[in-house]
Every structure is written in structure tokens, then in C-alpha cells.
Design a protein around this nucleic acid. Structure first.
Length: 813
RNA sequence: GCCCGGGUAGCCGAAUUGGUCCAGGCAGCGCGCUUAAAACGCGUGACCCCACGGGGUGUGCGGGUUCGAAUCCCGUCCCGGGCACCA
């Protein structure tokens, strides 16, 4: 303890030992009267060792957890690992090492480093999604969804990643490429497992209003769900005597529909016309990659089908086409085309010489087409002259009365494709039986354990298919020979419910106890990267709602409040191995200590923003922490222990209370860790500045000691080891057991304030005056200012604006 | 193309409600301590002009509203993110 200089590693090890020995951060599920607070970082994917993003997310989360504890909350702050997934499996393919081995080695390293960082985790609830004790319940939950019709198997055109050799969810395809592999995704017709997330589209949309999330994430979810209101309108085709409903958001433009288009995948295209030309067009469209087909600047191609459809509003026969700009997955796979008021239809019509008929005028006489704005209707029979917004509802109503249409809503959101043809994932607990069809594995036979295999290489089917002993089972329903489902689940399934498991992590009778879950959920503060704005956050919300409907839990939203941290960059660029600009948390902690590494990352800028890493910057924080340590040691050696500050308040005491106030609002309300830390730096700077004069009197010394202890208390959420050390040194108590300090309002006010005098809005003078001075007196002072007089130049003061406590602005003419 | 953010000192950033622009850190410069260096401490720290008292200009750019604008409005440029043939 008699160290001469700040030695972070020694201090940090000492406190980490205390916390581990005493299981300080474990929390019981017993209600003790305190309000609960569930603080959670998005669970890490264990691969290699933790990177700077992990350091940041836990620095933010831990600061919040500590703050909550010290402001009277019973805090749940657990951690686990998202352990299934492709990188471990790809590593296995390369090296032959079992994914379990590489994953668990990585988990051990993550755990070691998280402990090195001194993160206040309840380790008694630690879990890995690859452990049978966890995925047993993933399977159990899957079966509940299956029973309730929310998990189903369907033959569909799906996204196939040719590099990973597996299907991908819609959400995992970015710009037509696989999210991980970057390979162009192909469309394949395959039978796959889906979750019926589309049933929840409206609730997922509406309930966004009930949660406190960053606006951009809410917007991204809204756009992803993509709710469009409009109408379903039926077009009749005489050639096949078939009705073809189409979805439109613009029923008001129905009179301008001059042709009709079907997607190449539409089952009736070849029935309408099986000429070689049409067949060839369809074949080509189906084999093209999503990217080629999706490119917006792509020319609008298509082939006439030689048939017509009847426009229900006017009985017109309009030509039918097949064109790949119409998608089978959205709406009904067929559209009415209104070239005058839709850009895509306009382009197609221009290219194929189809009539373009304007049915909405522009109010300002703009005659350019296509026109997507509003205005009065023309060439629309009895709706002529009406404003198109009014006509909208009337046309839909009229269609309804004629049985030719109805109001309709469509979503961009697709069902969640969850099956993967890969090894390292949670097995789907289903047996395929020739007699019984799909038979769920009974609950008491769970988990369906992932078998060990020799060859992890994907071959267009799951590697599990080769494990014949495992695959061949008796049907759980009829006992006849049957086969297990060999696909595994998307890892996003594992991570869509882990936050519930933490609440009751060691329950071996159920995934959780409903009452225990109700006592912790929802997560009060969720922290993670914005890259999960859609996938993980949407899936987790869907699971929560689905389980609530099934009666397994009582909340509608899993994450009441979300904080998305910005990316730490270096030299303005994202850190990446290929750029060679990666900062390793391990090296930082070894060199400067965890407290400095954590504090610096919270100090570079607001944690929600990015922040550019500066190697010298962390040295500055390290210097500050050392200065605080020395100030504390100095106070301990040169002042007497006391119950608190005595004597007339000095600048240092006021500064201490100012810092308490500042850190409390910055951390508690704004997550502004950077300005909170700056406030503690200011406090310590003030202490060093006045050290000698303060130590000259017993009263001053007591204030110096109080300021040092306060600095330790305030820095604790960011630098927990040093905070504990300083506080114990000066008070003999444990800072985490102490309530969060409260600022004395009387000490936040100062006797004198500086008033700024402006002339026509420009600062010309400053006065120090007594606080609480009357407005009239202030104005008088301003008018009497010499500097104002010097600058008047014969002009006259015509008006004075007094902002109490701040400034006086004199207006001169 | 559409929808969000953002642009303040050499760099990261502060300014929370329209009221003193630039807190805090980094880099730089000067000084102290030291035989010396490191460490530490103190000071300085936008630009232009200056008679050394001070004066003028400054928040991407151009306008506007206001007694007063980094903050609000209009236009424009640049950077970052999301969506993108969704009818």
C-alpha cells in the first residue's frame, strides 16, 4: 500500500480479487424492496479475443450499472456468449479443430479479459448459447412456436450464399450479397424453415412508440417493416377466365392504368403464353443474381404476353406483360401499371411504346411526366375534378361495392428464414416421418444434442446429414423409422432470447420462471452497436411478443431503453486488420491499466458518437488518474480523517459540489461520459492548484480531503479500481456500498456572478456583481460602463434587454 | 434518387432552453524543478491589425429572422449512416 507512484495493475488486481472473492456483483432474484434495473450489453460473439468495440460497450454499460447500483437500484448485469456461428465453423473447416474447442478457447480469453477490465458482471448467470443446457431451451422455445403455427416449413425462392453454401435470411443480404461472405447471392427454390414474423408487422411497428430508442434505429425498423396502405384491386383476364388481384398504393390513378405486368416467377405467366420468347425471358430472370436484377439503373426489360386484362374501373382491355421489375415476393406478384404517375412504369411504357395517360393534374401547371404529386383528377370519369386524395377513398369504396377491390395493407417485411445448412448451430428438434410428416421431438427428449462429426465442409446440404447414426431415429409419434431434420438454426435465434435466460439462468425445469422473468424484464438499458438495428433487435422484439402471446411471459417489448454506441476509429478510419490500425485492448490494459483504457474510451467524445483513437490521448487520461492517485495519497498523508468538510466553503469545496452535480446529470440523463470525466479532471486540477493554501488550515485540509474522496467517488463508474482505492484510502469505506453523492444546492450558487455587457449584441464589458442583483441595478451598471460610453459615438441607447444572471444587451441607434 | 445524422482551434471535442464561442484532453511553445533527462508543476494556446491601452474578424459557404444565432428558417457544398425496381 505504500507505493510511491500510481501502479494501476497492482491496484486493479487487488480490487478484482476482492470482487471475485466476495461475489460482489451477484444479485439475487429475491425482491428486497429496491427498484430493479436490468443493464445489458449485447452479448459478444467469441472469436479470437475482445476488440476495442467490446471494451467500449462494457465501459459504457458498466458505468451505467455502477451508477444505478449507487442510486439505490437492485441491478442485474449479466454476460454470456453468442457461441454458435459460421466463423468458428469455417475455422474448423480450415484447421480440423472442432468448433467447440476454438469457441471455448476464445470464451476463456474473453472471460479473462473482461475480468481484467474489472467489469461488474454477475458471473453466476454466465452462459454460452452452444451449451446443451442453453440450446435445450432454444429448441423448447422453437417447439412452442411450431405448435402455435409461428414456425413453419415452406418451399420458397430463397437467398443462397454460394460461398457459405447455406441459405440466408432476407436481412442478411446486403446489396445482393451475403452479409458475411460478400458473395453474390443466388435465388434458389428450396424447402426451408421460417418464423412468421410478418404476423407481427403491425405490432412491431406500433410498439416502437412505447420504447425509448434512438430515433435513427426506430426509423430503420419502420422502413424495414415498410408498411404501405392502399388497395387490392381485381383485374380479370378473359383468356384464362382468371382474376388477378394487384396491390396498389395509388387507387386514385386507376384510370391511368394502361398495362398490366406480372413477375417472371408468377405461376400463370407460362399458362398465358408459353412461347419460346416468354419461356426464355422467365428462365433468364430466375437464374439471375439478386444484385443484377435489383440494380435500379437497370433497363426495364419485359415481354408482351399477347393477352389483355380488364381494368375494373372502366372495363378497358389493357395489354399484359411479364417483366422482372415486378417482384413475386411483394404484393401479389402482379401490378397495374400507371406510366403517367409512376417512374418505373413510365420508363417501361416509353421503351415499349405503351400509352401514357395523365389522370392527375399538377396544381401549379407542371406538365412534366411522370408526376407523383397530388392534384385534381382528369380523364377519370365521374371522379374528374375531385382532388386525388379524396378520390382515393371514394374509388376504393366504389370498388368494394362492386366486389372488385378492398382496402389493403402490404409490408416489405418477409418471414424470417431460420434454417441453415451448416454444422455449428442449434439442431432443429423435428423428425421427418413418412407416415406422420413433421413430428416434434418430445420435450422430455430435449436437447437434441449436436453430434460430433468428421467433415464440416458444407456440400449444399447440412454436414449433419452425414451423421447417419444421429439422423436415423424412430418417429416419436408412430415409432416407424424416420429421419431427423439436419438443418440447424440461424444464430440469431439463439440471441433472440438470451436476455430472458439470464433472469433465471440455472433453471433446469423451464427456460425461465414466469414470475422471476416478470421481476426483471424488460431490460431497462440495452447497449450495443447500431449494426444490430434491424436484425437482432427486430428478431428479439418478435420473440418477446410471440412468447407473450403463447403465455410464457408478460412484457411486450424486451428493451425499454436502447443506447447505440458509435464506432471507435483510428486516423479517421474503421479499425481493421487489413489496414493495420487495430488497437488491442489487451496491450492497452497491460500498458496503462484497465481504468485508463476504459476512461479514455469514454472520454474521446460522446459514446453515442464515434471517436477517433489517439495513442497520446490515453496517456493524458493516465496522467490524470495518476494525479488523482497522488492527490489522494497526499490528502491521506497530510490531513486528518474527518466526517466531512468544515469551515467556510472554499473554491475547491464548491468545485466538488459542482462536479457532483455535473457528473450526476451527465451520466444519469445524457450518457455524456466525456463531459462527466472532464468535470472530475477539473475538480482534481482545482485541488492541485490550491493545495498549499488549503493544507495550511485544518478547515482547508478537511475540504481538500473531501474533494479527493469525492473525486474518487465520482470517477468510480469509469475507473472502478482507482475509485475504490482512493475512496478507501480516505474514508476507510467501500465506494460501491456508498450512496451516490448529492450536491448541496447552497454550494452550487456563488456569491458573485459575472455579467456580460453587450452593445448591439457584441460583448464590450464584463462586471462581477453580487448574485441576486436586481434587473434595474444591472441595467444601470451597464449604462454607466465606461467601455459602453467610449463606443457610443454619439448614438443613443434606445433599449436595454436584461437576462437575469447572465447579461445586459444595450441597443443603440 | 429518397430518409436520417454531422461540419466549432493543428487534432479529439465543450457550449444541456436562442444569451460570455471554444470547458477538458492531445499536440505545440515558454518557464520552473533537475548536473542532465524523464517524470512532475506552472504559464501560453483561433486569425488579422496595433500606438501594447486595445481594435477588428471568426462555428463549411451564401442569405434571412431576432436586441442577440454554433443553436431557428431558406438555399448551397462537403462528410458519415440507412433504404433503394416494395407498386
Amino acid at each position: 500500500m505504500a507505493a510511491e507512484s500510481y501502479e494501476p495493475r497492482a491496484i486493479e488486481r487487488r480490487w478484482q480479487q476482492v470482487w471475485a472473492d466476495e461475489r460482489t456483483w451477484e444479485v439475487s432474484n429475491e425482491d428486497d424492496g429496491r427498484p430493479k434495473s436490468y443493464v445489458l450489453e449485447m452479448l459478444p460473439y467469441p472469436s479470437g479475443e475482445p476488440h476495442i468495440g467490446h471494451l467500449k460497450v462494457y465501459s459504457v454499460g458498466d458505468a451505467i450499472a455502477h451508477f444505478k447500483r449507487r442510486t439505490g437500484h437492485r441491478v442485474l448485469h449479466p454476460l454470456g456468449y453468442d457461441a454458435f456461428g459460421l466463423p468458428a465453423e469455417n475455422h474448423a473447416i480450415k484447421t480440423g479443430q472442432h468448433p467447440r474447442e476454438s469457441t471455448e478457447a476464445s470464451i476463456a480469453e474473453f472471460r479473462r479479459q473482461f475480468n481484467d477490465w474489472g467489469v461488474s458482471i454477475d458471473w453466476s448467470r454466465e452462459l454460452g448459447t452452444h451449451e446443451p443446457s442453453y440450446y435445450r431451451w432454444t429448441q423448447w422455445l422453437f417447439l412452442r412456436l411450431f405448435e402455435n403455427g409461428l414456425a413453419y416449413r415452406k418451399d420458397a425462392a430463397v437467398n443462397w450464399d454460394p460461398v457459405e453454401e447455406t441459405v440466408l435470411a432476407n436481412e442478411q443480404v446486403i446489396d445482393g450479397r451475403g452479409e458475411r461472405s460478400g458473395a453474390l447471392v443466388e435465388k434458389r427454390q428450396l424447402e426451408q424453415w421460417f418464423f412468421k414474423i410478418t404476423d407481427y408487422a403491425d405490432r412491431l411497428l406500433d410498439d416502437l412508440d412505447t420504447i425509448d430508442w434512438p430515433q435513427n434505429v426506430v426509423t430503420m425498423q419502420r422502413n424495414w417493416i415498410g408498411r404501405s396502405e392502399g388497395a387490392q384491386v381485381v383485374f380479370h383476364c378473359d383468356a384464362l377466365d382468371a382474376d388477378y388481384p394487384v396491390f396498389t398504393t395509388r387507387p386514385d390513378t386507376l384510370f391511368g392504368a394502361t398495362f398490366f405486368v406480372m413477375a417472371p416467377e408468377h405461376p400463370d405467366v407460362l399458362k398465358l403464353n408459353d412461347s419460346p420468347e416468354v419461356a426464355e425471358y422467365v428462365r433468364r430472370a430466375l437464374t439471375e443474381s439478386a444484385e443484377e436484377r435489383g440494380a435500379e439503373d437497370r433497363e426495364k426489360t419485359g415481354v408482351a404476353l399477347g393477352t389483355t386484362a380488364t381494368n375494373p374501373v372502366n372495363g378497358e382491355q389493357i395489354p399484359m406483360y411479364v417483366a422482372d421489375y415486378v417482384l413475386m415476393e411483394y404484393g401479389t406478384g402482379a401490378i397495374m401499371a400507371v406510366p403517367a404517375h409512376d417512374e418505373r412504369d413510365f420508363e417501361f411504357a416509353t421503351k415499349h411504346g405503351i400509352e401514357i395517360r395523365r389522370v392527375i393534374e399538377s396544381p401549379d401547371g407542371d406538365d412534366e411526366l411522370p408526376y407523383s404529386g397530388d392534384g385534381p383528377m382528369v380523364a377519370s370519369g365521374r371522379f374528374d375534378g375531385l382532388h386525388n386524395r379524396e378520390a382515393f377513398a371514394q374509388i376504393v369504396e366504389w370498388l368494394g361495392s362492386e366486389g372488385k377491390g378492398e382496402p389493403a395493407i402490404n409490408y416489405r417485411l418477409r418471414d424470417w428464414l431460420l434454417s441453415r445448412q451448416r454444422y455449428w448451430g442449434c439442431p432443429i428438434p423435428i423428425v421427418h416421418c413418412e407416415q406422420c410428416g413433421m413430428a416434434p421431438v418430445p420435450d422430455d427428449q430435449l436437447p437434441v444434442v449436436l453430434p460430433d462429426i468428421e467433415d464440416y465442409k458444407p456440400k449444399g446440404r447440412s454436414p449433419l446429414a452425414a451423421a447417419e447414426e444421429w439422423v436415423n431415429v424412430d418417429c416419436p409419434k408412430c415409432g416407424a423409422p424416420a429421419k431427423r431434420e439436419t438443418d440447424t438454426m440461424d444464430t440469431f435465434v439463439d440471441s433472440s432470447w438470451y436476455f430472458m435466460r439470464y433472469c433465471d439462468a440455472r433453471n433446469d425445469q423451464a427456460p425461465w420462471d414466469r414470475d422471476v422473468l416478470a421481476s426483471w424484464m424488460p431490460v431497462d438499458q440495452y447497449i450495443g452497436g447500431v449494426e444490430h438495428a434491424i436484425l437482432h433487435l427486430m428478431y428479439a422484439r418478435f420473440f418477446t411478443k410471440a412468447f407473450a402471446d403463447i403465455g410464457l411471459l408478460d412484457v411486450q417489448e424486451p428493451f425499454a431503453r436502447l443506447f447505440t454506441q458509435g464506432m471507435v476509429t483510428r486516423d479517421g478510419a474503421k479499425m481493421s486488420k487489413s489496414k493495420g490500425n487495430v488497437v488491442s485492448p489487451r496491450e492497452l490494459v497491460d500498458e496503462f491499466g484497465a481504468d485508463a483504457a476504459r476512461s479514455y474510451i469514454l472520454y474521446v467524445g460522446h459514446p453515442a458518437e464515434g471517436g477517433d483513437w489517439n495513442d497520446k490521448g490515453i496517456e493524458g487520461i493516465h496522467r490524470f488518474l495518476a494525479r488523482l492517485w497522488r492527490a489522494a495519497a497526499d490528502a491521506a498523508a497530510n490531513t486528518e480523517p474527518s466526517d466531512g468538510p468544515t469551515g467556510e466553503p472554499t473554491a475547491v469545496l464548491r468545485k466538488a459540489h459542482w462536479a457532483i452535480d455535473k457528473v450526476t446529470t451527465d451520466l444519469g440523463e445524457r450518457f455524456a461520459t466525456h463531459t462527466a470525466i472532464a468535470a472530475v479532471i477539473e475538480l482534481v486540477n482545482e485541488m492541485t492548484k490550491h493545495r498549499d493554501e488549503l493544507l495550511a488550515t485544518p478547515e482547508g485540509a478537511s475540504q481538500y480531503r473531501f474533494a479527493a474522496a469525492t473525486a474518487g467517488s465520482l470517477i468510480f463508474p469509469f475507473a472502478p479500481h482507482l475509485g475504490s482505492e482512493v475512496y478507501e484510502l480516505l474514508t476507510g469505506r467501500r465506494v460501491w456500498e456508498e450512496p451516490w453523492p448529492e450536491a448541496d444546492p447552497a454550494l452550487l450558487e456563488t456569491d458573485t456572478i459575472t455579467i456580460v455587457i453587450q452593445l448591439n449584441g457584441k460583448v464590450v464589458d464584463r462586471f462581477d456583481v453580487a448574485a441576486g442583483i436586481a434587473d434595474e441595478e444591472l441595467e444601470g451598471l451597464a449604462r454607466a460602463s465606461e467601455k459602453v460610453g467610449d463606443r457610443l459615438d454619439g448614438r443613443e441607447i434606445v433599449k436595454a434587454i436584461v437576462v437575469p444572471g447572465r447579461l445586459v444587451n444595450l441597443v443603440a441607434k
